[in-house]
Write a protein that binds this DNA or RNA. Structure first.
Length: 497
RNA sequence: GGUGCCGUGCCCAAGUGGCCCAAGGGGACGGUCUGCAAAACCGUUAUUCGGCGGUUCGAAUCCGCCCGGCACCUCCA
């Protein structure tokens, strides 16, 4: 392995800089996971894919990764800025909605959407975290943390909860630029909560003995604030200082700013040495939202006929530090490119079985291309270049695919395996553990198509090309495409995408 | 008011001081193959990087101004 460094844009210092490991060869990495109050959408997954690519790149460099990604199943408020009367827990709010009617209680709802989330996670070929902690399973630690912050003067109790005093932590605002001073200047209507000393103070604990999920604490019945879980779980599994912390751009403020305040107040040490944030995914140039109907989930795209790896491909085709526009075009492009990798894979497998004698004529070129792809990934996850290099490799293989020697096939396999380990776009790496979602495509009568193909073959033999072409045309109207080759005629269902 | 991002061929999108007369994908066009197609493979497709100035031996890349688009600032990945 060469002397590669892994460089990423750091939100805190606003520059691209190498990841520095506290312990050589070990990356301690925390990535904020979803709140499981509904199906995750593909924008959520763009962020999780960024984390996935970090891990794959780190592993390609020979690092071990300790990767923690949480699931938020309590405490994430719909209106954290409002007084307790209006701010509602997202989980409770979801249960009251129309989709929530099918669940008996909020625990069932959380479990349902968590399961759905994990299925989509596997479908998109995301690496499993070393630990996937849940907020509800770390209640004691959160309460202890809140107590300690009060004891040390960083937080105070009110009739409605326990709040972190941002004035007590001098670093508040260092990640986002939203210092107390800047926040006061913001031209925005803020609802005042008289219970808090400063408007920017945020909840560590909400007192609420009516809440659907509640625990007993020294402050009484209630539930923890959203930010606290990440501070507590990151510290528990990864130690006081992380090498890298990731999330979506919206988490810069307030979530990560608040995590920093809590964690650094507790430990007196830097919370994370590096911060990365994935820009938002847009759909047809617009922000994704339920109301405008441009809201895609993994399963909704699968129903339209997308291959999960094509969704993955489309979502990583742009660099994470820039907004990415997801369109039908980008998805169908991804389908086409994915197909090239799959054809390569099939050609290589076939040649490993039946390939002839002969020298390896592609190994050197493929080796260079892999190195260039890895270089691109270590350069702030430049997926555009990495995918370009990966695709050039498919051209090298497909050019030879008719006459691939066994030796060339070995190099081809090595290349595809390494590209797949790095980018995850050649083949699924593990059993999904869930049923595939089939596209709602046209019903096909295979026997009938086979009969028509035979009729057409006979017509071609007797030079009745008019009849042969008519059969081909009719099937095309039905969405069936015929492909002639030396071995005979095959057919495929044309994708709707 | 604060914090950031972007404007590159018909479309998407890399490149951020010389290796760039600018990757890769789509599209279009030409070729191979084919009875003809489709698929596949091969090739062609920006002397130019929003505009105007400046710095430099050298700029898409740095600086200034201008034009245009976008995100976040306590719902959000």
């Amino acid at each position: 392995m060469s002397e590669r460094t892994f460089r990423l844009y750091d939100t805190m210092t606003r520059q691209v800089k190498p990841i520095e490991l506290a312990e050589p060869g070990l990356l301690r990495f925390y990535s904020c996971g979803p709140t499981v109050y509904s199906y995750a959408h593909i924008g959520n997954f763009r962020t999780f894919l960024t984390a996935d690519l970090v891990i794959r790149t780190a592993e390609a460099l020979g690092w071990t990764v300790k990767y923690v990604s949480n699931i938020t199943d309590v405490g994430h408020l719909t209106q954290d800025n409002l007084a307790d009367a209006s701010g509602e827990d997202k989980m409770a709010s979801a249960l009251k909605s129309k989709e929530g009617e099918q669940f008996n209680n909020v625990w069932e709802l959380a479990e349902f959407y968590e399961d759905a989330f994990l299925e989509d996670w596997a479908r998109l070929n995301l690496r499993e975290p070393s630990v996937r902690p849940r907020a509800t399973q770390h209640m004691r630690e959160q309460i202890v943390a809140a107590e300690q912050l009060v004891k040390e003067g960083y937080a105070y109790e009110t009739p409605t909860g326990v709040y972190f005093s941002v004035d007590s932590f001098k670093g508040y605002g260092k990640l986002s630029g939203n210092t107390q001073e800047n926040l006061r200047k913001a031209v925005r209507e803020v609802v005042l909560d008289d219970n808090k000393k400063e408007q920017a103070d945020f909840a560590l604990w909400k007192k609420d003995d009516k809440h659907l999920m509640q625990w007993y604490s020294p402050f009484g019945w209630g539930f923890p604030g959203w930010h606290l879980e990440c501070s507590v779980m990151a510290r528990m599994y990864l130690g006081d200082t992380l090498d890298l912390h990731a999330g979506g751009e919206d988490l810069i403020f307030p979530h990560h700013e608040c995590e920093i305040a809590q964690s650094e107040a507790l430990t007196g040490k830097p919370f994370s040495n590096h911060w990365i944030h994935t820009r938002f995914l847009q759909v047809n140039g617009e922000k994704m939202s339920k109301s405008t109907g441009n809201y895609y989930t993994v399963r909704s795209l699968l129903e339209k006929g997308a291959d999960p790896l094509a969704i993955r491909y489309a979502l990583i085709s742009g660099i994470y530090t820039k907004p990415l526009n997801f369109t039908d075009q980008s998805l169908s492009d991804a389908m086409g490119n994915l197909d090239r990798f799959k054809r390569c894979d099939a050609a290589v497998e076939a040649a490993l079985e039946n390939g002839g004698e002969g020298p390896d004529v592609i190994g050197a070129a493929l080796g260079d291309l892999y190195d260039q792809a890895l270089d691109a990934m270590t350069n702030d996850l430049n997926t555009s270049v990495a995918l370009a290099k990966a695709l050039e490799g498919t051209r090298v293989i497909l050019r030879e695919s008719e006459s691939l020697s066994k030796e060339s096939a070995k190099s081809g396999k090595l290349y595809l395996d390494r590209i797949n380990a790095l980018l995850g776009i050649v083949r699924q790496e593990r059993d999904l553990g869930c049923d595939p979602i089939e596209a709602a495509g046209p019903k096909v009568d295979e026997a009938r198509i086979q009969n028509l193909i035979e009729e057409r073959t006979a017509a071609k033999k007797s030079k009745d090309f008019a009849r042969a072409d008519q059969i081909r045309k009719d099937l095309e109207v039905e969405g069936i495409e015929l492909r002639d080759s030396i071995e005979g005629t095959t057919w495929v269902v044309k994708s709707a995408l």
